[in-house]
């Protein structure tokens, strides 16, 4: 991920031509512009689209993608791709369901247990990538497979809900605690709890990354680890922390799904992975950042959410969704890298 542009012999141009800066501004706000156009377009075609209830449901629908996108973003900022994000969420989902249904745990211990599983997975990824120096893509891909298989073992591949048939022939009697389900279903002041959770977390992580010295070191470590190390930064600690944060955020995403659905469905989490990576990469184009960034990821997730919700309202078939997402991603990346290259 360390692409260093060679030093071009061109003298820095003292004046930027106005045309170029207009183009730059266009690129900066392009995604916001398209988002506004989409909202206007969908609202005029289908007035129900702009109703607050629908807008909130869009936000609620994108909250898990946004959360996982934040996880990808944090890992990427510190220079490591994390492909195990989706599987981590799925594992936390299964772990929390199992704790409640089979072990009959309460809401709080379950929550802690789920988050802890994410932290553990993050540490495992860090062990592979930072200590054993396995390339990040390969290591986290391996983790993804590992987790995908691991979650099938406790229940033999069955979904987890009350009445689950256990190995010894008895059936599980635990239920999802209402306090736990509230995490996915409740509203506070009319706003869905997952949206609030994501909003608060995004603000915290944004401040951490963009406004504090620790954020600078995260970015420096990801951009040029050697330079960060020579500047005195404990880079292995930062990379490990990034994987742990990433794992915990992904696990929280899994917990929210469990709370929303009220059942522990086994899945590899690969669609979660693709959507969150998509949100992160679309985020590269926001404000022409060309780097993983918190605000961009959030906008990216909302962008995809608005697009899919609108298209569904216009009765565009469900099965075209992935194609549309791919199209948006290609356009955003083209905007970021293809047109952006002209600047340098």
């Amino acid at each position: 991920m360390t692409s260093q542009s060679a030093t071009l012999p061109l003298a820095p141009s003292a004046v930027k031509s106005p045309r170029r800066s207009a183009l730059e501004r266009l690129r900066r706000y392009a995604l916001f512009g398209v988002l506004a156009l989409l909202i206007i377009g969908f609202s005029s075609a289908e007035p129900a689209f702009i109703q607050p209830a629908n807008l909130l449901s869009i936000l609620q629908g994108t909250s898990v993608d946004a959360l996982l996108g934040l996880a990808v973003t944090v890992a990427l900022i510190a220079g490591g791709f994390d492909l195990s994000i989706g599987a981590t969420a799925a594992t936390a989902l299964i772990a929390s369901s199992y704790a409640m249904v089979v072990w009959q745990w309460g809401a709080l211990p379950t929550l802690v247990f789920g988050l802890f599983s994410g932290v553990l997975i993050g540490l495992f990824n860090a062990l592979l990538v930072v200590r054993l120096r396995i390339p990040d893509l390969l290591a986290t891909l391996a983790t993804m497979f590992l987790l995908g298989g691991l979650q099938l073992i406790p229940t033999g591949g069955q979904s987890i809900s009350s009445g689950l048939m256990l190995r010894d022939g008895s059936s599980a009697t635990g239920v999802f605690a209402p306090a736990f389900l509230a995490l996915g279903r409740a509203r506070l002041l009319g706003i869905p709890v997952p949206v609030l959770v994501v909003g608060v977390l995004a603000l915290v992580i944004w401040a951490l990354m963009e406004r504090t010295r620790w954020g600078r070191v995260f970015y420096a470590t990801g951009g040029n680890e050697e330079a960060a190390r020579l500047a005195g930064a404990p880079t292995t600690r930062y990379r490990t922390t990034a994987y742990v944060i990433s794992g915990a955020l992904a696990a929280l995403g899994g917990l929210i799904i469990a709370a929303r659905v009220g059942r522990g469905d086994v899945s590899g989490g690969s669609s979660l992975l693709l959507d969150s990576v998509g949100a992160t990469l679309i985020g590269f184009a926001v404000l022409d950042a060309r780097r993983p960034n918190v605000l961009g990821t959030l906008v990216g997730a909302i962008f995809v959410g608005v697009l899919l919700n609108g298209l569904t309202m216009l009765n565009v078939p469900f099965y075209t969704q992935d194609f549309v997402k791919g199209l948006v991603l290609v356009a955003a990346l083209g905007l970021t890298f293809g047109l952006g290259r002209a600047r340098r």
Binding site: S5, G222, A227, R291
Partner: peptide
């Protein structure tokens, strides 16, 4: 290699 960051990075 030793001092700078990629030009698009924060910082």
């Amino acid at each position: 290699r030793s001092s700078f960051l990629p030009v698009d990075s924060l910082g």
